[in-house]
Amino acid sequence: MKRYGMVIDTLKCIGCGDCVVACKTENKVPEGLCRDWIVEEVKGEYPHLQMEYRSERCNHCLHPLCVYACPTGASHIKKGTNITLVHPELCTGCKACIAACPYDARFVMPQGYVSKCTFCDHRLEKGQLPACVSVCPTHCMYFGDLNDPLSEVSQLLKRRKWKVLAPEAGTKPQVYYLT
């Protein structure tokens, strides 16, 4: 099984938003909606401040609460991977998955079905990287199979300090932030 993961170096990210634009273009995400977004977090008290930019998206969790909450099977895990996808033709737009996601990564498309980041599954099938990773001008985004100990993402997580978002939620998210 492939455990796809994204590793984002917060020390290199400048919050330019190219990943967001690339995603919207690649996946034809309608105006006003987005599958990924930039968070600017400032911590501490003046003058001892720390700022961090994060490109956030669906975490393709190993324990996907959204999939468990879906009453029709529209939200599912792609066979042989940890990629969480939505079948538009099975989705009723009940929004149970939206309520179940601790990362608020899902949204309703104008047609009525729920959508979210797919790690650009269609590009992976062609051997390409997700659109966001492929356009990042600072090369702060990495993508690969975390079950492969020799992959770039596995090596980065071995060498560097990292964090995931809301690990206490118990979802085992697969988007990692190098700090």
Binding site: Y68, A74, Y113
Partner: peptide, 20 residues
């Protein structure tokens, strides 16, 4: 429901982990 035309999909599946 956001996708009203698909309301019947509730009754084409029983998902044991889904309370809904």
């Amino acid at each position: 429901l956001e996708y009203k035309a698909h309301f019947w999909r509730f009754y084409t599946a029983f998902r044991i982990t889904s309370v809904m």
